[in-house]
Write a protein that binds this DNA or RNA. Sequence first.
DNA 1: AACTTATATTATAATTATTATAAATATAAA
DNA 2: TTTATATTTATAATAATTATAATATAAGTT
Lengths: 152, 152
Amino acid sequence: MEHRIERIKKQLHSESYKLTPQREATLRVLLEREEDHLSAEDVYLLVKEKSPEIGLATVYRTLELLSELKIVDKINFGDGVSRYDLRKEGAKHFHHHLVCIECGSVEEIVNDLLEDVEKIVQSEWGFEVQDHRLTFHGICKQCQLAAVKATQ
Amino acid sequence: MEHRIERIKKQLHSESYKLTPQREATLRVLLEREEDHLSAEDVYLLVKEKSPEIGLATVYRTLELLSELKIVDKINFGDGVSRYDLRKEGAKHFHHHLVCIECGSVEEIVNDLLEDVEKIVQSEWGFEVQDHRLTFHGICKQCQLAAVKATQ
DNA sequence: AACTTATATTATAATTATTATAAATATAAA
DNA sequence: TTTATATTTATAATAATTATAATATAAGTT
């Protein structure tokens, strides 16, 4: 974790941004909750636990900055709030998501899966792909099992 | 167009919803601007041109209803507003989008492209896919050409 | 270590998008 | 025509996000 913070710190400095305590605290929350898909408000509340003096607007600004630097990705699952998701280190592309319409759980897929599709888009549509957003909506394994059990 | 309205009218009735003049006016705007990706506000302003008495909340409610019935899909390209996009008639899945980060244009891809990927998700993750959202971000053909010309 | 300066934060206030409410109206079915 | 229900209107309320102006701070420079 410290390594990762160090690297991000360097990245910030290289683009002449400062690593303020607020930004570091925000980053730490994102790293600690890497599996989650937190909204700005969620992040704010978690940061507040350790740094009670932080303001919501600062969290928003920090998240926006981290988005610009491609350290986090801003996603929207259609529930009216933006969520912020750390990029996997070294990942060229954003990972994919499986959103369960039954229980609301969100699973991540880090495998590429879209290589072939991107080649097609490139050749057939002449579109130079730089990034993607792919989300599947459906029923997760757990909910499928629960449904089967319920009918037994 | 009239055929399509008729069919949607029947679909509404079959689920015991009424096709009110406001709903019909909203639908007509969506059909006329099928290529676009209008926000609720956009739709509202366009409907207002022909039916000035309509309220914004009615447009929101109508769009929500049409979403439930899978007649339109609600999408979010990350600019803070939800956009509403008519489904292609008979399409099982939502179509894909190419968003140009240079000029902001949005192109549609109606081809499936994800069949294989969905099979993998199903078999490897045990996730029962019901729908998807796929958006590519990059440079459209026109902007690529413009960039080449600019360096000549 | 103090100084400087651009950058960042705080504590609001403002804006924007969306949803809720209650009264009035319209519609389809009896 | 009556009745019951669905829908709309005209707000008001809420929720998410962004802007503003005064203050504070990080990090490079003397």
